[in-house]
Design a protein around this nucleic acid. Structure first.
Lengths: 103, 103
DNA sequence: GTTTACGGTAAGTCTTGACTTACCGTAAGT
DNA sequence: ACTTACGGTAAGTCAAGACTTACCGTAAAC
């Protein structure tokens, strides 16, 4: 349950832009590169990282690869964040309880 | 609504460890350094990054700084992730609807 | 008022990672 | 079959960032 891959994949603004473009609509690599101020190989490398984190996936169509969102990675991240959030809340409640007198 | 600070702050495993130590229990810098395989200045630098992302905050106690969790940053991150998640769901639902015939 | 504890900052090193151009493989079109 | 389109990978560059040691300021202790 290590969120490193998802966090570092989405930490980069350009890569996050790639992810959001794919999320809005599945596209081949070239179409993504057109929308971004970087070269096509750079997009390819970003997609590799995103795929490695389970955030996108490719489906072949001839020589083209259509990249689509993969919910797996995002759900993993969501679970981790929610988990942290709950534990913070628990800690705060316990502190408040301790403050107000022994329950 | 830019989650870069939170994502990149938590992407580093060591820094995430620092965050979780602070989350479990507020501590001064020295106590954190003892729990970790890195030097005290390194911990200080990590705390600076975490504080910059609104994930922790310090309260003074003489020459000591007691670091505590700050819910602000985590909530920002949570909102962003949940937002992405919802939009992925929407996209999927729409695709399924399109698949099943025009609604 | 010296000394001691605590911790932030500066400066330097070394690794990682985000990009580039150049190259190569594969599938489709003519 | 040749050519064209698509895109992944290699190799190299350059900046960012995760560490280290050395140093400095400040507050409490004696």
């Amino acid at each position: 349950m290590d969120p490193t891959a998802q966090l570092s994949a989405l930490a980069d603004p350009t890569r996050r832009k790639v992810f959001e473009l794919v999320r809005k609509q599945p596209r081949p690599v070239g179409a993504l590169a057109e929308k971004l101020p970087i070269s096509r190989p750079a997009v390819s490398q970003h997609l590799k990282v995103l795929a490695g984190a389970g955030l996108v996936q490719a489906s072949m169509d001839g020589t083209r690869r259509i990249y689509t969102v993969n919910p797996t990675g995002l759900e993993k991240l969501r679970r981790w964040v929610d988990d942290q959030w709950e534990q913070v809340l628990d800690t705060f409640e316990e502190a408040a309880r301790r403050e107000a007198g022994k329950s």
